[in-house]
């Protein structure tokens, strides 16, 4: 009879988890190529691992749910549901009357996509109505570049924080 000891199970489990983190990193890099461009593999693994711990607090355990949760983390920030402006997201993830954890996540993702689509449609309608300025192609490009620069600064996780002590 084959006996697997607890210590062996732990090693097996740690290996499986690392394998999963690696797979998730690969998946995210494929889906969010631009957003994750400036992040090293080690840093990304750390972020993914921490986000998976967060996901488990909401009862999200399946590969599929973890993967969907990580999509939100890259889109809205690694601890998105802890931000004051995203308090509604935390409510969605923890509402005891909103079904099981998978159903709660499904509802949250659906709402996120809906909000983004409505905001975009509203913007387009206001542009067409002339209540906001319609950016021409050049201006839009400049705007995009500016946003990217800001994004890179915000997501430059690999560099240590300069607290002014180093010469």
């Amino acid at each position: 009879m084959l006996t697997i000891r607890n210590a062996q199970m732990k090693v097996l489990s740690a290996q499986q988890r690392q394998k999963f983190v690696d797979a998730m990193c690969e998946f995210l890099r494929l889906q969010f190529k631009q957003e994750l461009e400036g992040i090293s593999q080690t840093s990304l693994e750390g972020k993914v691992s921490a986000a998976l711990n967060n996901a488990s607090r909401y009862g999200l355990r399946s590969h599929r749910d973890c993967c969907r949760y990580l999509n939100l983390a890259v889109t809205y920030g690694w601890e998105f549901e802890q931000l004051p402006e995203n308090a509604w997201m935390l409510e969605y993830l923890t509402d005891p009357n909103a079904g099981n954890p998978s159903q709660r996540l499904q509802r949250l993702i659906c709402q996120c996509i809906y909000k983004m689509e409505v905001e975009e449609n509203n913007r387009q309608m206001h542009e067409a109505f002339g209540t906001i300025e319609n950016l021409d192609a050049d201006e839009e490009e400049q705007y995009d570049e500016l946003e990217e620069d800001e994004l890179l600064i915000a997501k430059d996780w690999d560099k240590p924080f300069d607290l002014g002590q180093n010469p």
């Binding site: 998946f27 355990r61 939100l72 993702i109």
Partner: peptide
Amino acid sequence: LKAADQAAQSHSSQLGVG
């Protein structure tokens, strides 16, 4: 987000991690 979510649903299993 929609594309990433569709990919997540089609490429990952419903098994728990580990």
